[in-house]
């Protein structure tokens, strides 16, 4: 199934050719957010916040066709 992955801030360097950090990738039926992170070759340790369709989710959450997965690194400055 095909999903959309959006990489934010420094995570965009894992897909330097993806305009705006947006990629469309194929993952297996039943794949989780963690599987999608591996598919796009993002370092999972750098992902602190995940969202599917605008809602925060754990890495183990299963994906559905057409889902939009957002991956955020930690922002801590002040």
């Amino acid at each position: 199934m095909r999903i959309e992955v959006r990489l934010y801030a420094t995570l965009r360097r894992f897909a330097p050719t993806a305009e705006g950090g947006i990629l469309f990738v194929d993952v297996a039926e039943g794949a989780t957010a963690a599987d999608a992170i591996a598919t796009v070759k993002v370092d999972a340790d750098e992902v602190h916040l995940l969202m599917i369709n605008g809602r925060n989710c754990p890495a183990g959450q299963a994906l559905c066709e057409g889902d939009r997965l957002g991956l955020f690194p930690p922002i801590g400055g002040g």
Partner: peptide
């Protein structure tokens, strides 16, 4: 804790790379 999984060894985020 929903936003930060854990603090890294430095207790900092990507501001160490991007600045502020």
């Amino acid at each position: 804790e929903k936003i930060y999984r854990t603090a890294g060894p430095s207790g900092k985020g990507i501001e160490t790379v991007l600045g502020t």
